[in-house]
Design a protein around this nucleic acid. Structure first.
Length: 554
RNA sequence: GGGCCUGUGGCUUAGCCUGGAUAUAGCGCCGGGCUUCUAACCCGGAUGUCGGGGGUUCGAAUCCCUCCAGGCCCGCCA
């Protein structure tokens, strides 16, 4: 509905002004849409902006009034206010299952996210990647994309060589009840300490790197064992976060299949290639001072080489390729994009996010300095359960736990996704455990409240209308949901959806406060119940697109 | 030293790409609201040189230049 109405306004303005860009902006408090085209037109026509605005308004108001759009002139501003037809149309759309979904688009999209090294559990920095990636995945699906979500497992890197060395040389047993990925991290930390104490171990690590590259069966087995232990633990954590991947892709497959050698051969023949002891690319033409090294002097490949093969495979199999990466990968990510261009492949779109650090400094798996997502989840769950116990003591305990689980997952996801990715953040327990206003539980609560009203109401006849200022404001915000999905799917900025959902909950709560639903009678009761249903459905769709459970009771 | 990102009330944060009408919210603070559809809520109030300076423009938080501060990167790690 919003798109159609926007198009009507735009069309009328273009026709009346002859301008290609009619400068439509958000109307703020004044209107649903506004145009500042009168400013630029005034200059061309050598008139004052206010009179231009009046002229344009008188020219288009006739056409738009017929569509129920009121045109108002406030000085140089042209304001457009959407009327009853619009509100009715929005309510009708918002009642439908899957509101905000777009028809299937052609082409296939691939998104890669998380892809943390399997040398320890996911910590609170990694899951910024997971939450951004998973939220975008949900948005893209809703926007009609045929999507595959991938986790790229680095199963032959130096870190894994270190872990495998640790398992062979350090006597460290798994604790009672310890998750496999946490155990792997302890071994990894201990192995790194051993290396720091005795430099000669590095030669042994290099030997393992060489053996894994040549496919030595024993080394393959050792690496695989360590990697699968860790990945198993990571998968459990992802499940707790409502994060779903379609495929785990192992980088060693690109070495085994020969795809990596194929890519390296072609690159060797390019003028940008520099081959002495190592193989590297000169990307100065793309503005990179730093050479892009692909092969070590001992003949083994570096991560970048395997990554190029993976991305060439993606380029062959998908029409749109998206990666979610930490800001520390900016340089290497852009070098990868440039190299894909050299190869004539589709470079990926990359969503970068800035770092999450601890108050005492940055996190490091190697140093054992991190807060694991599992620990975070446990703390948040405990707090959520306390809250449920206090509010709903009458519920059976499995129901309380289920609500607390949904609240905990939602709180964590929302806390991460609400902030713009290019803002560095410091992890804060107080904020993570805050379930008020700017949080998932706040939005979940608004949804549950709507469900409760609908449950008490029983059967009613749908009636489409919005009269009070609170009803109108709510409907107008509901109207924007499809536009938000469309915007986020194109611009890949998931925090926009988080903010939208919070604002929707705000507007619903305000409506709830001022406009009684069950206590009024007749058509007003029906129309308000219909609006509650539309709001509930939109809240549900928004929450689910954020990967947050839309619980019906809490 | 070079590159990228960030700087918005005491704290956290939206808006910046695509300039427009009194700069968005939350926490905290002050005051009010549960015999009333779920108070994980609502209403009202105080709090801002939008990091500093310069420029472009009818108009700058938004664009350009410059300086300052913080984060990240500049490895034959990933």
């Amino acid at each position: 509905m919003f798109f159609n109405t926007y198009a009507l306004v735009e069309e009328a303005l273009v026709k009346a002004t002859g301008e290609e860009n009619v400068l439509i902006v958000d109307g703020g408090d004044h209107a649903d849409l506004a145009s500042t085209v009168a400013f630029s037109l005034a200059k061309k026509r050598k008139m004052n902006p206010a009179s231009v605005a009046s002229e344009v308004a008188s020219e288009i108001s006739g056409v738009l009034e017929k569509e129920g759009i009121t045109v108002e002139v406030k000085g140089p501003y042209l304001n457009f206010i959407f009327g009853e037809e619009y509100l009715k149309g929005v309510i009708g759309e918002a009642l439908k299952e899957g509101y905000g979904s777009f028809p299937a688009k052609t082409g296939r999209t691939c998104i890669e996210h998380t892809s943390a090294n399997p040398n320890g559990p996911l910590h609170v920095g990694h899951i910024r990647n997971s939450v951004i990636g998973d939220t975008l995945s949900r948005v893209l699906r809703k926007a009609g994309c045929s999507l595959e979500v991938e986790y790229y497992v680095n199963d032959m890197g130096r870190q894994i060589a270190i872990v495998s060395w640790g398992f062979d040389n350090i006597d460290l047993s798994q604790n009672e009840g310890e998750k496999d990925d946490h155990y792997v991290a302890r071994v990894y930390v201990a192995a790194n300490r051993a290396i720091e104490a005795d430099e000669s171990i590095k030669a042994e690590i290099d030997r393992r790197m060489s053996l894994i590259e040549s496919g030595d069966p024993e080394m393959v087995r050792k690496f695989r064992e360590a990697v699968s232990m860790c990945v198993g633990g990571i998968k459990e954590t992802l499940l707790d976060l409502n994060v779903r991947h379609n495929r785990f892709i192992f980088e060693s497959d690109f070495v085994k299949s020969g795809l990596m050698y194929n890519v390296l051969h072609r690159l060797e023949a390019m003028p940008e290639a520099k081959q002495d002891e190592t193989l590297s690319l000169d990307l100065t033409a793309f503005g990179f001072e730093k050479e892009y090294v692909l092969r070590r002097s001992d003949g083994t490949s570096v991560y970048a080489a395997r990554d190029l093969a993976y991305h060439e495979w993606k380029s062959d199999n998908f029409d749109r390729i998206i990666n979610v990466l930490g800001a520390d990968h900016k340089l290497i990510g852009r070098q990868l994009q440039a190299t894909m261009q050299l190869l004539g492949d589709k470079p990926p779109e990359i969503v970068f996010f800035e770092f999450v650090s601890l108050p005492e400094g940055s996190m490091s798996t190697r140093a054992g300095k991190f807060i694991s997502t599992d620990d975070l989840m446990e703390e948040v769950f405990k707090k959520a359960l306390d809250e449920v116990e206090e509010r709903r003591p009458e519920l059976p305990s499995d129901e309380k736990e289920s609500i607390a689980r949904s609240v905990a997952t939602g709180a964590i996801r929302f806390d991460i996704v609400r902030v713009s990715p290019d803002k560095a953040t410091v992890f804060d327990w107080k904020e993570a455990l805050d379930f008020e206003k700017q949080s998932a539980p706040y939005i979940q609560y608004a949804h549950a409240r709507a469900c409760s009203i609908l449950a008490k109401a029983g059967e009613f006849n749908e009636s489409y209308s919005a009269e009070s200022e609170y009803e109108v404001a709510l409907v107008k915000h509901i109207a924007l949901f499809p536009k938000i999905i469309d915007d986020v799917s194109r611009e890949l900025r998931p925090h926009v959806l988080a903010i939208y959902a919070r604002e929707l909950a705000d507007l619903f709560n305000t409506f709830y406060r001022f406009d009684p639903v069950l206590k009024v009678e007749g058509d007003l009761r029906n129309s308000r119940l219909t609006l509650v249903k539309a709001a509930q459905n939109t809240l549900k769709e928004a929450l689910e697109t954020l990967g947050i459970d839309a619980v019906r009771s809490m």
